[in-house]
């Protein structure tokens, strides 16, 4: 059995599915999860935007280390961290190589390093936030920020459907395999087999599209009966839905300490610029 077939056995696909489900559904007790989702989003937008406009390396390093700590408190799955560091590393290397090729020097190298630092800081912040935020709460936060009810419903419906859709997709892929024929010739770099699998992965969406359309009809009908459209047109329903969202003392503490952290960072940065 070759590598590709091994990759396609249920053992590896099942473990892949499991990783995915764990990432999406097991989110307990991480640091950021305890706060009001709106405050978390606010907090996040500070660290997602600010680094781009900061050109002081000391401040950026302080940001970076804080994010490392918060991310480690958020129990991010290894899979995602590996992906993140790998992409970052590759990005870094390719820009450096190309830049030197184009006549860049150590100054360019430093600039790229700073840029990468920003990228990683922002990425860590977002990973920490979205690995610990319950999509349900996130969707409610979006609703309270005034986004359309459909979008916020989309978030939670996605959350509801993922495992079911993945399972169905997997079974349809199996259906193709149980009737198809894997090419005997492997071809250069096994391209024939890769092409075979790629083709199935795409074609499996044909039944998926039709099956999902059938599902959607019942779902939308049920939404109608369950008063979803009614709620869209009645602000008091939205209010009721969001009534559990409350800014408590610890949310204020989070914001206050963030402000404190920012001002200290900038102060240190101005004294000891790198």
């Amino acid at each position: 059995m070759n590598y590709i077939e091994k990759l396609l056995t249920n053992v590896s696909i099942d473990s892949l599915k499991l990783t995915l489900l764990r990432t999406a559904y097991v989110k307990k007790g991480s640091f950021l999860a305890q706060f009001d989702p709106r405050i978390v989003i606010l907090w996040y937008s500070i660290f997602a935007i600010l680094p781009w406009f900061v050109h002081n390396t000391t401040v950026l390093l302080l940001f970076f280390f804080t994010m490392v700590i918060i991310a480690s408190l958020s129990r991010i799955s290894g899979f995602i961290l590996v992906m993140l560091s790998f992409t970052t590393f590759c990005n870094l290397i390719s820009i450096i190589v190309l830049t030197f090729f184009l006549g860049g020097d150590i100054e360019a190298f430093l600039a790229i390093l700073t840029l990468t630092l920003k990228l990683v800081t922002v990425a860590l912040a977002s990973v920490a936030v979205f690995a610990s935020l319950d999509p349900e709460k996130f969707s409610d936060a979006l609703l309270s920020f005034g986004l359309p009810g459909q979008v916020s419903f989309g978030v939670s419906y996605g959350y509801r459907m993922i495992p079911i859709l993945i399972e169905e997709y997997h079974q349809i892929i199996n259906s193709y395999r149980l009737r198809g024929r894997i090419p005997k010739k492997k071809g250069f770099l096994r391209w024939r087999q890769l092409f075979y699998m790629g083709k199935i992965a795409v074609l499996a969406f044909y039944p998926m599209i039709l099956n999902t359309a059938k599902r959607t009809r019942t779902t939308v009908e049920a939404l109608e009966v369950k008063g979803f459209t009614y709620a869209l047109n009645h602000p008091e329903a939205k209010k009721l839905k969001l009534s559990y969202l409350k800014v408590r003392t610890k949310d204020i503490v989070l914001l206050a300490s963030t402000c404190l952290f920012l001002s200290i960072s900038f102060y240190i940065g101005s004294i000891y610029p790198l």
Binding site: L16, C90, S94, Q150, Y157, G158, M161, I162, L165, T216
Partner: peptide, 30 residues
């Protein structure tokens, strides 16, 4: 309209998940 929205969201999302799970062959950032 809601049906189209929900359908499109679910399917495109699923496609996105699939492509995300398939490892990319990376040469640098490309």
């Amino acid at each position: 309209k809601l049906m189209v929205f929900v359908l499109s969201m679910a399917l495109f999302g699923l496609g996105d998940l699939v492509t995300e799970l398939v490892p990319d062959i990376g040469i640098g950032s490309i």
